[in-house]
Each structure stands twice: as C-alpha cells, then as structure tokens.
Write a protein that binds this DNA or RNA. Structure first.
Lengths: 145, 145
DNA sequence: CACGATTGCTATACTATATAGCAGTCTAGC
DNA sequence: GCTAGACTGCTATATAGTATAGCAATCGTG
C-alpha cells in the first residue's frame, strides 16, 4: 500500500497545504450550509451587508474580491430570493441592504458558520490556536512582495 | 471611503481568511508558473510522480484529491506534452513515470515553487514562521470531527 | 470460481472565476 | 460650466476546477 502521506514532498510546502486545507474547509462549510440552501459566498455577502448597510454593489465586490461582472447574477440571485434588496443611490450605483428575511436567514447562517469555525479551530492544538488568525492574515496580505 | 478592511467581520473568521489566503497564493503561483506553461496541479503531479515513480493513476488521484474521472484528461494532457508516460502495470492500472523532458521541466518548476513558497513565508513574522506548517496541517486534517 | 471491489474511461453538469466591451453616469480639473 | 477620464452595472463569453452517474474490463479474496 502506498504511504503517500508520509513520503509526499508536497506536505512540506505551506502553499500546497494551505490550498488543501482551504479546499477541505470550504467543502465542509458548503455542506453545512446546504441545509439553509446557501453557499459560502452568500453568507460572506450577507455578513458584509449587515456590517456595512447600504454598501454599493461594486464596493462589496471589491471587498469580497468578486468581479463586477460576476456580482450581477450573484446579487440577482440573492435579491430574487428576497434576502437582500437593491436601492438606487445615484443613477449608476446600487446600494445593498438586507431584507427582514435576509436578517432572519443570517441569524441561522451565522450559527452554522460559528460551528464550522469552531470545528476548524478545534483541530489545532491549544498552544498554536492563538497564532492561527495572525498567520493566516499574514499569508494573505500581499503588501510585502 | 469605505474602510472595509477594518470593519469587515469576516476578517475575524479563520475559515474565511484561510480561503482568501489560499486563493491569493494560488493565483500568484499560477502566475509564476505561467511562463513554464504549467498550472499548480501540474507541478503537484510531477512532484508526486518523482517521489513515487510508478504510482498508478488512481493512487495519484487519491493522494492529490482528484477524482478518477478528472484524472483522465489531466494525465492525458501531461502525457501529450511529453512530460510523463503511462505504463500498463496490469490490465487495468496505469503506472505513471516522468519522462526525461518531465524531469527537466520539473527542475525549473521546482525553482518557481520554491520562490513562491519563500515569498509566502516571508510575509509571516519570524516568530510565527515555525508555526505555519503545523497550523496548516492541523487545519487540513479532518480526523477529528 | 464467483462475487464484490477497483480501474480507467465517457459524458455531463455545475460552480467559480476571468476578460472584453458597452452605455450611461459621475467627478475633478481646467 | 464643460469636458476628459474614471466608474458602475451589465451582457456575453470563456476557462478552470470539481462533481456525479454509469460502463466494461479486470483484479483479488473468500
């Protein structure tokens, strides 16, 4: 039998492990969110709008790193579902706000996310746990080339 | 102006930051690999075959978490490019080996990957750097529910 | 030896992401 | 004020990555 996990040189590469960890966590989260008929990006959007009500569509796209072109069907789907609404802020920009329905759904979604995040952290030994977020933030930031 | 980076509650969620860090790192790596006309998955495959010559197609798929169905065009592309070759090990399994061309390409690819990994780690403060791989491995492992 | 598991494969579909271009709108500098 | 350039939402389209179902041939084990 193949002892891949032991010999695989990829396991020495933070970048590779980062990718695998992310993919695994994402799949798990999406599975948890499936019963709310939500995807991870939906929840990110709802949480963002909640914390920044009236954020415009393009601003939200920049924060979440979603292209303007891809925001269109994305927002349309959430609007069609009645969880957010668009409001014309000037004649080109759309401000986004949660509907009552969206706020209710978000309460439930947040619980799912919290459970997911807790499960993630639980895998990390206590001693290392405080370093998780600082390290991930550092890996993310691209200020330093 | 929107101070999203400061107020965004998503930045408190390790799972979210994990995803963004992974996406950013992956995009950067693919950009670096573009000049070799390689994608990140190609390099992972080449490195795996190098460390486990004669690994079968389905074994490699399991290690890299690529579905059998998706391995077919993936391997075919690399074979068509002449960097790996398939060898019938029994009448259903294909063993994979690097060609000379594949080994030469891998030398160059590994340099690119090394530069990428170094750049990644350089973003993390010295003190935290030794914890990067242990934490990512812990986040990845799904043994503990 | 027969049965269940495995392998490689086709076909297909869906998600996520990316680019180019367009018309209408806004805004900063002259 | 006007205009040039930037910005917004949008359409259309393309690609990468991933997922499932099913098939025929083959293998290994009880």
């Amino acid at each position: 039998m193949l002892r891949a996990r032991a010999s695989d040189p990829l396991l020495k590469l933070p970048g590779y492990v980062l990718r695998r960890a992310s993919a695994a966590a994402l799949a798990e989260l999406n599975q948890r969110l499936a019963r709310l008929n939500l995807r991870h990006a939906d929840v990110a959007m709802l949480m963002l709008i909640e914390s920044s009500p009236g954020i415009t569509q393009s601003q939200a796209g920049r924060v979440l790193d979603i292209q303007r072109a891809n925001m269109v069907p994305f927002v349309a789907r959430l609007e069609g579902r009645g969880v957010l609404q668009r409001r014309q802020v000037d004649r080109r920009s759309q401000a986004l706000d949660l509907t009552r329905r969206g706020r209710v759904l978000l309460v439930r979604a947040r619980r799912v996310v919290a459970a997911h995040e807790a499960a993630l952290l639980r895998r990390v030994p206590d001693k290392l746990r405080p370093m998780v977020l600082p390290i991930l933030m550092a890996l993310w930031n691209r200020d330093r080339p």
